[in-house]
């Protein structure tokens, strides 16, 4: 069976204007069953040729899984026909990953922190909080349908 994921890796011998030597893009359908494979593909290509610590690999796997799940479930509302786009720009000292959905977007500033004692028993609401804790920087586009996560390589 053919994978529904579409992967493109561009490795250039010289870094581009911003200094990114490698660009990894993956397009996946709005199907949560595709998340694990997409995470493994992007992680493998992001860390190829670098001595990544297990902690860096773990953090990348968790935040990718989290951001792609948010994009599929909350952004695209699992609508068939809508896709999620992952774009990883690889620098010598930094990995920058964009995850973009085709939804309306949301306002990340109104998402409450989920660690107050009265909220611990809630099943949801930890995704964005976890991402913020596990990467070095998080940014959203104006529409709120694209997250940019930056991890420094150790």
């Amino acid at each position: 069976m053919t994978s529904p994921l579409r992967l493109c890796v561009r490795r250039s011998p010289a870094p581009d204007a911003e200094g990114a030597a490698t660009l990894v893009t993956v397009r996946l359908p709005s199907d949560v069953a595709c998340i694990e494979e997409a995470v493994e593909l992007v992680t493998r290509h992001c860390l190829a040729g670098h001595q990544a610590t297990p902690k860096t690999r773990f953090r990348l796997q968790v935040v990718l899984s989290e951001a792609i799940a948010n994009a599929i479930v909350r952004g695209n509302r699992e609508e068939v026909g809508k896709c999620v786009y992952v774009r990883a720009e690889l620098f010598t000292d930094v990995i920058r990953v964009y995850v973009t959905d085709e939804g309306c977007g949301f306002d990340p500033s109104v998402v409450p922190e989920p660690i107050r004692p009265e909220q611990l028993d809630e099943a949801g609401g930890r995704g964005l909080y976890l991402i913020r804790k596990l990467v070095d920087a998080v940014q959203f586009n104006e529409q709120g349908n694209s997250i940019c996560m930056t991890l420094r390589r150790p």
Binding site: E122, A123, G125, R126, L130
Partner: peptide, 17 residues
């Protein structure tokens, strides 16, 4: 186990409850 996402943590919270 390799990794857990927030949905997995949420499932554990529901199971615990």
């Amino acid at each position: 186990t390799g990794y857990i996402d927030s949905s997995g943590l949420g499932a554990l919270v529901s199971i615990s409850k």
